[in-house]
Amino acid sequence: MRIKRAAVLTSALALSGCEISIFDPKGTIAAQDAQILVDSLAIMLAIVIPTLIAIVAFAWWYRAGNTRARYRPDFEYSGQIELVVWSIPALTVLLLAGVIWVGSHDLDPGAPIKGAGKPLTIQVVSLDWKWLFLYPDQKLASVNELVAPVGTPLRLELTSGSVMTAFFVPQWGSMIYTMNGMTSRLNLRADKAGDYYGEASQISGDGFADMHFKARAVSADDFAKWTQSAAGVPFDAAAYKELAKQGLANPALRPLAAPDLFSDIVTQKLPPGPGPKPSLRPPSVVN
């Protein structure tokens, strides 16, 4: 494990050149998510900023030492103020509820999105502590590297080969849980070529911090070239079982030899990963 760690570190260094901020979206879903975030923030700031100012102003003006402030020790009720006090937050929330309602439906992760060309299906498997990306149509199995053509709708089917975690590429948009025995669906589209940061966003054990991956958006030509570059022993059930053991892994692209691998994982024909060996205090994974 220690030896592997050194290799992984170098690949992680390469990764850190990736972009990441969610206010710099590079995919349609990320852009829309961010837009809704900004809109909701704006709606709320419209009432929150005056409130904050009023808190400071009232506290200051009505300080005990201020002789110019009028003391009204019996001012404890006012119908008009009560009305305003209830209706302002209520109206704000009404507006926000509209955003919530429309946004939840438009940006439902399962909802298909448009784009150039035929949608590309990618099957995502989270493992302890690496990501396996299967391209059933291209017959590819990629570890810790997700490559997608720019502009093509991506139809992601996700599951977990061990514990529950979440798949997230901040600049492409919406995260989603991965769970063993189940398939989650997520539709994304990368709109600009580049290397992006992908991560697991739900604690999954000791190797969690290393469970990130490179998400590459490339041109159609480059994608075609990439699909040709698969090398090494074909990836099959035996290879999967080996990969499913706890530990870290370097990016690798291999031809996929088992076309039903994903459904075998979901249906548990291939059992979930074994976890650590039983012991009181398991030894360090990463030194």
């Binding site: 409130t51 103020i81 704000t92 509820a97």
Partner: peptide, 29 residues
């Protein structure tokens, strides 16, 4: 999501009521 936003209404009302408790008061810090 909507229910969660709704819970902010009574919470906001409380903030405003403390605000108006200070209004017209003699606030000792």
């Amino acid at each position: 999501g909507t229910m969660s936003a709704i819970i902010a209404v009574p919470t906001g009302v409380k903030i405003f009521n403390w605000l108006f408790t200070m209004y017209g008061g003699r606030v000792r810090f």
